[in-house]
Structures are given as structure tokens and as C-alpha cells.
Design a protein around this nucleic acid. Sequence first.
DNA 1: ACAGTATACGAACGGTCGTGCTATTTTCTC
DNA 2: GAGAAAATAGCACGACCGTTCGTATACTGT
Lengths: 199, 199
Amino acid sequence: MATKGEATRAAILDQALAAASRLGLEALSIGHLAREVGMSKSGLFAHFHSKEQLQLEVLEEAVARFVDTVIAPALKEARGEPRVRALFDRWLEWEQAPFLPGGCVFIATANELDDRPGPVRDRLVAYQRDWIEALATAARLGVGEGHFREDLDGEQLAYDLYAIILAFHHFSRLMRDPRAEARARRAFSDLMGACRRPT
Amino acid sequence: MATKGEATRAAILDQALAAASRLGLEALSIGHLAREVGMSKSGLFAHFHSKEQLQLEVLEEAVARFVDTVIAPALKEARGEPRVRALFDRWLEWEQAPFLPGGCVFIATANELDDRPGPVRDRLVAYQRDWIEALATAARLGVGEGHFREDLDGEQLAYDLYAIILAFHHFSRLMRDPRAEARARRAFSDLMGACRRPT
DNA sequence: ACAGTATACGAACGGTCGTGCTATTTTCTC
DNA sequence: GAGAAAATAGCACGACCGTTCGTATACTGT
């Protein structure tokens, strides 16, 4: 286990993830990143053999952390509304995680990649698809549990949840609106209200 | 039209707006843009005296078109729900306007500017603030007209509307989801349903 | 038609980018 | 502690970036 290499590699990815959160994956600069980590450009470059590979590994790292901080904890909650609520709460936490100074790295990256074909885009889209599917599944379980209306459209709920989070990102990151989180939570609770089965 | 200069200037801005829609304002490259328009880099540069100025003028152009295609027509609709509906419909049209091949240029730019201070960011934020305020005002008029609940929060509705559009951008541009528009319209009609005064 | 100006061009600058090489240093293994 | 292997540094490259400048061409008003 070549420990030293993996250690610096982890340090690089950590720094790169933070940078990608603020500026996006595309704007990652190897020279700038090397200066931040405190090593030479070529030394850093040797770990990944291309910038694209670096981007892919940053993406992978982000996904691993997303699973840890959002998905895994939420799966411990009871099926149905509690789990959906946990997914949303954790997602909102993720948006403000200390290692993501610029907010969700997927959102930050999405816009700059939506017209740039390539492996990085492909990976991102695949991950997003999985995540949306996970949201829809959690929503459908809520119907099975009797928490939600029988005619609830799981994919539509996934869309609505994503909408709330995207707006939170927009209002808090761009507009610096301090009421962004309150608005997001309000929107979520209204949405839950509309999903419950009529009494 | 004063002459040749303004004509090419308009052609440049037109091309630049399309490019910014796809890749963002930051990713605009003067050399690349010049090649697309069919002129020399320095010739193009002479029109705007810095890249930042070019970005600002592209932003200005986008705002002018947004007013023309979204705001102005909607203001002709009756106050209240019809106007809110018109604003939303036109906004969705705007997202798919032919001169915006990458979707709404404001959204495309928002993410790359949210951690880049400067005049361009400042202008964008100011415009966004105006737009959100306009949405909130339109919502409040709906209360006065008796279309919406008395306790409706205009700013919250503006947030919710923005959320739907942002999600549409995400699902259609990144995910290439053909059901994105249907989802957006469904979300909007659900939202309107929740805003109407209880009968 | 001519003068004067607006417009465009080409070349060059300093800078940063990603990416190869080749040494050299550091770390790990026996 | 010696030798192998991994990790890092140094340097150079071609490409592209925004920007400047001097010059040539095209237009405009008279």
C-alpha cells in the first residue's frame, strides 16, 4: 500500500473538489491547483495522466461523498415520507457542506457541461439519472406505505424536489439571499402537503 | 442605423449571445467568436474595448430580448392569474428561443458567476433581482384581483416559479429529457391550484 | 472627387493553459 | 542500509488567451 502517493492524491482531490464547487469542473486549472496544494504542476499532473482523468476522479470523489452524506443516512429512515424528508434535508445540508464552498458541485458543473460532449458529461448525466431515479423510487415507496396519494407520480415528485434544490442554489449562491433556506423548506413542506393522501 | 459599424456590432452580439447561451459568458473567447463572425480578432476587439465590456453588452442584449419576448407581452394580459400564467408560458418559450441554442443565458451564466465578483456579476444579480421582484408583484396583484389566497406570499411564489424553470433547464439541457416541458407545465398547474383561494 | 474618419487587419506581446520529457529526490522493501 | 520503485521537480513545447499598436482599407459627408 503505497501510502504517500495516496495521501497526496487525496489532498489534491480534496482541494480540487472545493475548487470545482466554486468554479466548476471545466475551470479547474492544474497549475493553479498545484500551487494551492503546494507542489509542482508536473508533480500533480503525474498522478492523473490528463486533465480529463482528474475531472473524472473529482466527480467520482464527489459522488462518494454524496452517498455518504445524503443517501446512506436517508436509507436508514423509515420508508415513505420520513425517508423522502430525510433525503431532502440531507440534500440541503450537502448544498452547504464545508467541503463545498461554492455549493453543490453537480449543479455548478451541470450548466457548463450541458453542451460539451465527452466522458465527463456522460458520467455526470449517468449519476444524475441514478439520483433522480432514487428520488422517484423513494417517492413511490411513500405511496406503498400509505403516506402519499395513490395517483402520485414519482418522477414528477423527483422533478419538483430537484426544482426546490436548484432554486435554493440559485437564490443562495448567486443572489446571496439569506431567506433562501427558509423558502426551500417552505416549498418542501407545501409540496409534501400536496402529496399526502386526502383525509 | 448609423452604419456599417453598428451592423457588424449587432452581428457580433447576436453570435456572442448564442455562444454565451451554450457555454456561458465567461467561456466566451474573442478569437473563437471572431472566427465565427468571419472577421479578425483585433477587428472584433476594437468594437468593445475589453472582454468585460463585451460580456456586459451581451448581458444587456439578452435583457432587452427578455423584456421583448417575456415581460412586454405578459403585461398586456389581465392582472392576476392570467398575467402570471403568461409570464410563465413566455418564460418557458424564452428557454427554447432559437437565438438561445443552449437555453436561458442567465441561468447558464449564473453558476459560473456566483463566485466571481465583478461588474458582470453585479449587473446579472441586479437584473435577476428586478425580475424576481416583477414576479412577486405579479403574484401580489393576483391576490388583489381575488384570484389567489389572501395569505399568499408573493416572494415565495416567485421562488417556486423560478424553481420550476430552473428544473426545466436542468432536465432538458443536461438530461435531454423529452418530458421536461410536460413536467414543468404540470408543476406549474399544481402550483396555481395551490395558490387559488379555497372555494 | 476628395478629405477625413470609421472600420478592419496582421503581427506581436506577455501570460496561462495542458502535456510531454528527463532528472532527482523520497519512500518502500528486503 | 542497499537497491528498487514510486513520487516529485524542472524545463520546454505548442496552442490559445486578451490586449496593444501601426497600418491599410472602406465608408461618409461635403
